[in-house]
Write a protein that binds this DNA or RNA. Sequence first.
DNA 1: TTGCGATCCATTTTT
DNA 2: TGGATCGCAA
Length: 671
Amino acid sequence: MIEEELNEQQRKAVEYDGKHLLVVAGAGTGKTRTIIARAKHLLQQGVPANRILILSFTRKSAREIVERIKSEIGGITVEGLRGQTFHSWCMDVIMNNPKVFMHHEYTLLDEEDRESCVKLLCGKGLRDKEKHVVKPASILEVYSFAINACCSLSDAMRMKLYDNASREDPATLKSIELNKPVYEDIIKRYMAYKTVHKYMDYDDILNVVSKGLKKNAEARRFVSSRYDHILVDEMQDTNPLQYELLSSFYERCHLFCVGDDAQSIYAFRGADFKTMHNFTSVVPQSEMMKLTLNYRSTQEILDLSNWVLAKSPLHYDKELTAARGKGKKPVVVTCENEWDEANDVTEKIRRSIVDKGAKYEDNMVLSRSLYGLRTVESQCISKKIPYIIFGGVGLMQSKHVRDVVSPMRIVANYKDELAWMRYLLLWRGIGEVSASRIINNVIEEETLDKCLDKLAGNGLQEEITLTLRNISNMQFSPSQAIAKTLETMEDRLKELYKDEWKWRKQDFEVLQEVALGTAGIQEFVSEYVLDPKLETTVKQGENGPEDACILTTIHSAKGLEANICYLLKASPASFPTPRSIESGPDAVEEERRCLYVALTRAKDELHIYRNVHSIHVDPQSEDPTESLYFFNEMPDELVEKEATRTARLNPEMDYQGPVVGFDVTDDFDFG
DNA sequence: TTGCGATCCATTTTT
DNA sequence: TGGATCGCAA
């Protein structure tokens, strides 16, 4: 057992014995450690493990916390201790209380299903009253925001479609009022469609429980009496809907919430970090505490992070101090373009291994977007550097896996129209029209078997029915069902994916592995929507998956740390993005917090990349991408500067400052 | 109606 | 870079 020392602030929080507590914890101040210590403290006080609930925002951190508790707490039984996302917890609540919520036999829609659903309802070429094209995705965005932020449709439209324009702007208001019926119509039809087909989307999971508990005092009493303590991680990402949900537990449970307002980067999902500032007035009988001592980074890295935050017009009241003391200054690397950047990053990674004896996993590459990781990824491949991508499209979302899962979904719930559609369209000779006809013909039957009999009567290719029958006969061995499905579908899949099939096929071995952990088709298909266990993609497993460098989006990096961090594309027009500039100051500040999250991941070394053109940026420029650039006017003493060879050879580059850490041996290998 | 090829498009972030 | 969409031929 690792008995890590808690500092005074942490200990006070951990041993808090009032009702509700919010711990405002800066980056690297031991947020997770505090939650774990709290859980441990409660267990030692004799609180049964099954009366403690740990909630987090992402699956990754929920999983990590529970794993760490299990490994760090010896001697006490942690059986029944649960760490879940808000979504998976609410799903459990729905399943355990079927009579209260009445949604236990609904099929979950994932993001893609949901979009095809709305596409269906929109028809093609839908336009609003001002003749602008309305994209199904933006309807969903507005709808989802309204639910999560608990706001009106008009407000959601204003935030999402009108760049968060002022509430008073008459032109905007007029436009919203004019177009609202268009959105309202589709949304209503979407909601009706979900009800008819017994579908539930991500937002419904929270909404059903939150509203259900709020309305029904009896249910509230019953459900909340299941727990004594609720520990909430990443509190700054909690949106109004989740607040509402938690409010049903104020009375009977103790809340222990941990978060950092400066790391709030989920405003696009309705989270508002300012709510955290009001915690003590919103939550009755609550108190607030702070953690300010940083254990992760060296002072130099924190100095830069503090500077970024201090330049914000918002007041974060944060000045982190490094418990570890001095180290190396962050390095700003100027490069020519993204290939030059990727080359330099991968070269540094390679050298950290060869020269310094580091492991691959000591290296973390951070990017604003998934897209931005591409170049580094391809360099990793050509240089044979093993890597893991966090925040990537999981295996479960990939096309070929969904293809194979679709017949399984049909068997799990043969009324699942969307699954039928996807499955039938796969086959040669069946397009949208025939597929709809077949579905209408078949779906009214009373049992799956009758359904299949009727399907067979349609004179279709034999494999279409055979695949479904096979799965139906293997209801309780999903792994074998996958194998059998591959047999009957392989010819068609080969035809569809051509030479890609060779590598796509390998994914199914992993999928079968996952399926072994579930009791049946039913469980397999519903679990994968909520918790696709394969959300990371490991490639280039030269040293096996145990040691690989981490490529991640900043959003997925929250809670992670690494000795050496590389922040990509920290150039103007990237920090902040033009898009956020258009959306106003709030969005720009969210970008700043994003940058802050990125900087504070680094323990020892931080390399910040920007392109050559960033050097010419004029803070007085008319162009907001230049004037708002976060690294404008950065004091020289905070960082070291260097340039890649290519950038340096660029004749246009008239950078006068010192070029540090650059010599011939520093260059990359052209051969 | 289906399926293929060409063209154009845009690229935040997550449950 | 690929992805989604559009238009055209079978």
